[in-house]
Amino acid sequence: MRRRRIYEGKAKVLFEGPEPGTVVQYFKDDATAFNNQKKGTITGKGVLNNRISEHLMLRLAEIGIPTHFVRRLNMREQLVREVEIIPIEVVVRNVAAGTICKRLGVEEGTPLPRSIVEYYLKNDELGDPLVSEEHVTAFGWASTQDLDEMMQYALRSNDFLTGLFYGIGMKLVDFKLEFGRLWDEEEMRIVLADEISPDSCRLWDINTNEKLDKDRFRKDLGKVEEAYQEVARRLGVLPEAGPVDMQGPQVMQ
């Protein structure tokens, strides 16, 4: 069956959904870093991220955070509600890592005085620049009310996910969230969209500070597949087939 491809990003392909207002989100094994300057493949990443994101989206929905997630369809695909993506990445930081170290001269691993929320414009050509609330509202990317809701959901998600990961021996260093506008007739509400996975979170082992996320790919640390599998294993969502058959069904055009 041929499906209409709506969009292809760095890590996912979106297809027209089986019913109006839905989209099928297909998880690829492609990996990119430094705004697409570094490219590679992490075998089985799509299968693992599909499971991990499903689990975390469902857990967040349980505490009242609205998401676009409907259900997982197979090893690599999930059904999600069609949303108008807000072009702002919301990053919540608990421990200094990545660009904040370079920008502010803070040593990696330094616990931050409190959780810091940053906004980045989703634009690969510009390198996803850091923007302020003033920029976001002045250019009309989101309203003040939108941002208030996004900030509230981001901080609640952070509180919940920090505890969840801590319970399985991991430190949530920082993570990125994306939001969308869900239209229901004339009603509009902000919902959590995209994915939550080791692609979008920095996760360190509590005891060793070993990195269990995409930084292993970014920094050529090796054992990238194993790190993703370890996160899935600790969350209790490692596919039953195990790492042997991580290819999963291939994308149908």
Rank of each mutant, 00 (worst) to 15 (best):
N74Y: 05
R59W: 07
H135R: 05
G127K: 04
E125D: 12
L56N: 07
R81I: 04
I65C: 09
V47A: 00
E77I: 00
T137Y: 08
Q78N: 15
V83A: 10
L112Q: 00
I85W: 11
S132H: 03
I88Q: 00
T67P: 09
V95C: 06
H55N: 08
E108C: 10
M75W: 12
H135V: 14
P129S: 01
I88Y: 08
G46T: 11
G109E: 00
F69Y: 12
R93C: 09
L104M: 09
G64M: 01
F69P: 08
K122M: 07
L56V: 03
R51C: 13
N94Y: 11
K102H: 11
V92E: 03
V117T: 09
V83S: 00
L79F: 02
E89T: 08
K122L: 10
V70L: 14
H68K: 01
I52A: 03
R114T: 15
L112T: 02
I86V: 13
H68M: 10
V90M: 09
S53A: 01
G127H: 02
L56R: 06
M57Y: 11
S53T: 15
V131M: 04
F69M: 13
V70E: 13
R76A: 10
V95N: 06
R59V: 07
L60F: 02
L121S: 10
